[in-house]
Computed example of a mutant assay.
Amino acid sequence: MNVTNQVMPSPQQAMAFFGGPEDGPFVMVNLLKFKPKAEYADGSEPDLSGADAYARYGEEVRKLVEGLGGKVRYSGEVTGLLLGEVEELWDMVALAEYPSLAAFRAMAMSPEMHAIEHHRKAGLAGQLNIRTLPGAGF
């Protein structure tokens, strides 16, 4: 299994994801890896950690998710690995519930999201986003 963290999806990934079936509410599992230091494009805040820059994004994105009728279900620091093997652990896991793919798309394309993305890009080294459907488990 090849695992590659990314900050932004490629156009092909975005088209495939947003072109998928509209099948109701889903939970996005976010595996987050932060930069040691924030890297703002304008060079500002060189002493801010990547996690702190991302926290600025997270606070605002929570409001956007809730405005859609969704909810951030969980976020927590990764402290260890019991099973499996990865070269480097993620720093944080977050679970966000969205009412629909259309709602997620609207949020992702909104001016409000665009206004806060610089914090995400400044703090995030990479991530995995895993879409999950409720009730499909054991």
Rank of each mutant, 00 (worst) to 15 (best):
E117R: 12
V93N: 03
E59W: 00
A94V: 15
G67I: 08
L128M: 15
L124D: 07
E77W: 04
S10L: 07
Y54Q: 05
G137S: 14
E77Y: 01
E117M: 15
Q12I: 09
Q6D: 04
P46D: 03
D23S: 12
L48W: 01
E112F: 01
L68H: 10
E87T: 11
K33N: 10
K121M: 13
Y74Q: 12
T132Q: 00
A55V: 07
L133R: 14
R62S: 14
F104L: 13
T79Y: 08
L32P: 02
G69A: 06
E97K: 09
G76V: 02
E66H: 13
G20T: 06
M107V: 06
Q12M: 11
E59H: 10
L81V: 07
M15S: 14
E66D: 12
V29P: 01
G69Q: 08
V93I: 15
E88M: 05
H118P: 02
R56S: 00
A106R: 09
M113T: 08
A94S: 15
L64C: 03
G70A: 09
L82G: 00
E87M: 09
D23Q: 13
G50Y: 11
N30S: 09
S110T: 05
F26I: 02
F17G: 04
S100F: 07
P46V: 09
R131K: 15
Q12T: 12
L81S: 01
M1S: 12
E77L: 11
V61Q: 03
H118S: 08
N129S: 14
R131W: 09
G80L: 01
V3Y: 09
V3M: 13
A51G: 08
P9H: 05
L31H: 05
Y40A: 03
A16D: 13
L68C: 12
A94R: 04
S75R: 15
G20N: 09
